[in-house]
Amino acid sequence: MKKIIVPVDFSEHSEYALKTAAKLAKKYDAEVLALHMLEMSELVLTASEGLQYEKASFFIKLSEKKFETFLNKPYLKDIKITPIIKHFKVFSEVDEVAKKHDANLIIMGSHGTSGIKELLIGSNTERVVRSSEIPVLVVKNKNIDVNFETVVFACDFLEESIKPYINAVKMFDSLNAKIHFVYVNLPNERFQSSLEIERKVVNFFTKAEGNLDKMSDVHYVSDYTVEEGILNFSNKMGADLIAMPTHGKKGLAHFFHGSVGEDVANHATLPVMTFKI
């Protein structure tokens, strides 16, 4: 892990992410890229060319000053911090910055959302989770222990999950973490027998690893929703982190079907790391 991106909006939750990044940076000698997304108002964007330049310069200087103050924290001492200000209108474009700088991880703070507000408005964190091609770590508080010794990786063991699985194993091997895999079996029409699930898991590891060495680390649980199954199992295992693939669904597909990865990231008290399918 060499480069960590932290989107900063000067809120307490973005500071939670910054503190977590600082801990990981110290542990792995990584660089922290603190990214502020400067959103220009419509008034600035529609002003005349000369006036537009003056207003843009004013907001850039104001942000730079505020950014400098925000990054002047004792816990960032002796850490390589690179401040970046981009003139983007939405947080989904964080992924472009990650690709440009060859970053390994994005860390975002989130207070979580629920109900109709979540469906209609969403959050900056959700947008990044949906769009990012690299892992996204979502944290909820300032006292995150980055010694991720026990990780629960939730998986449906479909072939489309092989890529995020491989990326997750690579990430957690580098962190010396123990991974427990969990499959959540649901009632009604989505119920599968133990034999059906095991066949799916065997096929998955055969294609992903070429062996069945990790079969002993797979757990089957039953619950009413995938989200509840993941959260309940993680609490039972005393997990330090929940990891999972996410489809990154958008628009109507996201509205009607949702994304378990986003739901868990929203509602878990544990930190959650997502890997895009």
Rank of each mutant, 00 (worst) to 15 (best):
V44D: 12
L45W: 08
L45D: 03
A47G: 08
E49M: 11
G50R: 08
G50N: 13
Q52P: 04
Q52W: 00
Q52T: 06
S57E: 14
F58Y: 15
F58H: 14
L62Q: 12
E64T: 10
F67C: 05
E68V: 02
T69E: 15
T69D: 15
T69W: 04
F70Y: 15
F70R: 12
F70V: 12
K73L: 04
P74Y: 15
P74W: 15
I79G: 04
I79Q: 05
I81A: 02
I81D: 02
P83Q: 08
I85F: 08
F88G: 06
V90K: 10
V90S: 08
F91Q: 10
S92Q: 11
E93H: 03
V94C: 03
V94Y: 05
D95R: 01
D95H: 07
V97P: 11
A98M: 03
A98Q: 11
A98D: 05
K99F: 07
H101T: 11
D102S: 14
D102N: 15
A103L: 10
A103F: 10
N104A: 06
L105S: 00
I107S: 09
I107M: 10
S110C: 11
G112L: 00
G112E: 02
S114L: 07
S114K: 15
S114F: 14
I116N: 12
E118I: 05
L119S: 08
L119N: 06
I121Q: 09
G122C: 05
S123L: 08
N124W: 10
T125P: 02
E126T: 04
E126D: 14
R127G: 09
V128G: 09
V129S: 02
V129E: 01
R130I: 01
S131H: 09
S132P: 07
I134C: 07
I134H: 03
I134T: 11
I134E: 02
P135E: 00
P135I: 01
V136G: 04
V136M: 03
V138R: 00
V138I: 07
V139D: 14
N141F: 05
N143H: 13
N143K: 11
N143L: 05
I144M: 02
I144P: 05
D145H: 09
D145M: 05
D145I: 14
V146G: 03
V146C: 10
N147A: 11
F148A: 13
F148T: 10
E149V: 03
E149S: 12
T150K: 12
V151I: 06
V151R: 09
A154S: 11
C155D: 08
L158W: 00
